[in-house]
Amino acid sequence: MEIIASIFSGRNIALLGAALAAAFAGMGSAKGVGMVGEAASGLLTEDPSKFGKALILQALPGTQGIYGLITAFLIIFKIGILSTPVELTVAQGAYFLMASLPIAIVGYFSAVKQARVAISGVNLIAKRPDEVGKAITSSALVETYAIFALLVSLLLVLFAKV
């Protein structure tokens, strides 16, 4: 029992939150960037000169991973892992775990959905390279919700009482 209690200490539960934020948002971005990259390579076999445009579209679903990373870092700062560790109760640790959930969940799904829009954007610039702005904009619309989730996670972490 004591082992279990020490594993699920307040600080470790908070760290689980940081891990989830970085892991799920990162997984979503990795998947998304990979999907767009495959589509972009198909386009580049036909016309390598569109690399710059395809690269921007490919980079778009990568931001969720960064949002997850930021949330994870803020939790790490807040509980003082890098300086003087703060003692947390289990409830305080659970607070950080909950705070990480918006960006972990929305980050994963929005990255994948955004990648799908970016892939159709790649198809768009294959035929009409001048319309890259529209492709970027419609893909960025999906990201809005990842930004909102990040905002919720960030505010929860920044206002945590420890």
Binding site: L82, T144, I147, L150
Partner: peptide, 21 residues
């Protein structure tokens, strides 16, 4: 929708903090 200004601003600031640490 303009709250994204805060989110992206914080994102840039926090990554910069990590680099500085």
């Amino acid at each position: 929708s303009y709250s994204r200004i805060l989110a992206l601003g914080l994102a840039a600031g926090v990554i910069a903090q990590v680099v500085n640490i």
